[in-house]
Nucleic acid binder design. Structure first.
Length: 505
RNA sequence: GGCGCGGUACCCAAGUGGUAAGGGAGAGGUCUGCAAAACCUUUAUGCGUGGGUUCGAUUCCCACCCGCGCCUCCA
């Protein structure tokens, strides 16, 4: 089986094959770095990561470019409000974005392309469009003449005749010959950053950066271009117009768009008070892996209804998988093998792969793995599981996690690493209850954290040994006290047939 | 108004022209010093509403209702 993907351009699910044998060239629209990205953004970014990972899983050599829009009305406005230069301001949020990416296990692309570092290339493309008669100037700005490009609307299926000229125009909109036309190059305004170029002074329009950076790194025709569904029009439609007008070649083969995230059935907005960044959720005590899992769980073409209940459920689901793997690796089983069970593991792997090939149906892929987990647990409980069967199940689990990337229990370590959790000295937790999950301002004052008393692994292991000794002596009051104390420090103990295990809350 | 996505159990959610995956939550049970984990049983005669096609529809068709997105530089 091979990957089938819904292509916005055709409006159908199509069999995916790359232009070049084994190499897939993909461009995904990244953030505009004027603030922290919100979980709606990350719904799309996680989806793009799932797509990327599945392509790799299927053996493709993936070349991936992500753009960073670091100049636009909002970045300029916010940088000015903050009283810092644009570059310094956007650097700050690019840094935050990259931290978020690591928290969510989003793989690194080959290239993060910043708009402001490609102004020269944009100038060249605009000049090419001017030379071919697709562009015109007006009061220092340069516009794309949409009526010169007959294919306009092929992606978004808009009917151009339906847009009435002069219906609504922004107060500060530049003069255009036709309302459908869009700006390629903006004349400089008072107090705004601008570049002095052969086109004259100004700054780039929004759409031009993606055409330029995509073609620069991926070629004039490449395989996949992805973003949120809101970008279909006008952003991606305009990219197609600019690029294909300039090159005369098809710009992108597969356009893939993620549906939006909503919160409690309503759209997310600051005014409704249901607007969350990744940091907001972490400050509430949720694990990054749970957030990733939730965002990945709903197949990308369906709106995702974000709720805290759903986030809690995601956390439970991950725990179930991690518990299973722990049992698989640590529990003692009789020697030998059970071929029927190993076939079961292999079948689960095939079912999960089939789900992913089916337009990245992550829900199906998850069901496949949970079916396997239940069957394996049952076999273990019934004594049918053999020592030699571990590998087959671990193998399927490992393959599954190449895409979902939630199995490794490193949330705590990552949060400490990036300063979201500030470990307290031992004993300090008495003064500040761990349960309170108190937020404190740390770093540059633009993030928050959960306070937690942090025990080292060695300290935890020693406590467990002490508890086991007490249990052997039948001193259950003592052993329960140790367990309670560890729980207060965020460590959960579980007694299994193969000994006591621990994990961080 | 135009284009698009969606409405499946308490919550999230898959799915198919032939009689409803999976996860979470709840209830009962097994195991355990207790707890946790795990397992077993159980929770939709029903898939937004009303029609139609069909031997048979949640799945196809029509109409309608509701949510969301875009149609103004929003992932």
């Amino acid at each position: 089986m091979s990957l089938r993907l819904y292509n916005t351009l055709s409006g159908q699910v199509e069999e995916f094959t790359p232009l070049e044998d084994n190499r897939v060239r993909i461009y995904t629209c990244g953030p505009t770095v004027y603030d922290y990205a919100h979980i709606g953004n990350y719904r799309t970014f996680v989806f793009q990561d799932i797509l990327r990972r599945h392509l790799k899983y299927r053996g493709y050599d993936v070349v991936h470019v992500i753009n960073l829009t670091d100049v636009d009305d909002k970045t300029i406005r916010n940088a000015r409000a903050a009283g810092v230069p644009l570059r310094e301001y956007t650097d700050r949020y690019i840094e935050a974005y990259k931290v978020d990416r690591q928290l969510l296990n989003l793989e690194e692309p080959q290239k993060f392309a910043r708009a402001t570092e490609h102004v020269d290339d944009m100038v060249k493309l605009i000049q090419a469009l001017e030379a071919k008669g697709f562009a015109y100037r007006n009061e220092g700005s340069i516009y794309f003449r949409v009526e010169k490009f007959p294919d306009y609307g092929k992606l978004s299926k808009i009917d151009l005749s339906g847009i009435r000229a002069g219906a609504r125009v922004d107060a500060d909109e530049y003069d255009k010959a036709n309302v459908r036309d869009f700006v390629l190059w903006k004349a400089p305004k008072e107090d705004e950053p601008h570049w002095d170029t052969p086109l004259g002074p100004g700054r780039p329009g929004w759409h031009i950066e993606c055409s330029v950076m995509a073609m620069k790194y991926l070629g004039e025709t490449f395989d996949i271009h992805s973003g949120g569904s809101d970008l279909i029009f006008p952003h991606h439609e305009n990219e197609i117009a600019q690029s294909e007008a300039a090159t005369g070649k098809p710009f992108v083969r597969f356009w893939v768009h993620a549906e939006h995230l909503i919160v409690n059935g309503e759209k997310m907005s600051k005014s409704l008070g249901n607007y969350y960044t990744l940091r907001d959720l972490i400050a509430k005590g949720y694990k990054p892996a749970a957030i990733r899992y939730l965002l990945a769980s709903v197949p990308y073409r369906k709106p995702l209804n974000f709720t805290f209940d759903g986030l809690h459920q995601a956390q439970q689901s991950i725990d179930r998988l991690r518990n299973f793997r722990f049992r698989l690796t640590k529990e003692k089983f009789p020697e030998g093998e059970n071929p029927a069970l190993q076939e079961r593991a292999q079948a689960a792997r095939e079912a999960f792969e089939e789900g992913m090939d089916d337009n990245l149906n992550t829900a199906k892929a998850e069901a496949a793995i949970f079916d396997m987990v239940r069957d394996a647990n049952t076999a273990m409980d019934r004594g049918e599981f053999r020592d030699g069967d571990r590998g087959a199940f671990l193998d399927t689990l490992e393959h599954w996690d190449r895409i979902f990337a939630v199995m490794e229990d490193d949330d705590h370590a990552k949060l400490v690493k990036f300063g979201f959790i500030k470990p307290l000295a031992k004993g300090a937790a008495d003064a500040i209850s761990w349960q309170d999950e108190q937020k404190i301002a740390i770093g540059n004052g633009y993030t928050s954290a959960v306070l937690v008393e942090s025990l080292t692994e060695e300290e935890i292991e020693n406590q467990i040994k002490e508890r086991e000794a007490a249990r052997r002596r039948g001193e259950y009051a003592r052993s329960d006290q140790i367990r309670d104390n560890l729980l207060k420090a965020g460590v959960i103990l579980e007694d299994t047939k193969s000994g006591t295990r621990w994990k961080r809350k």
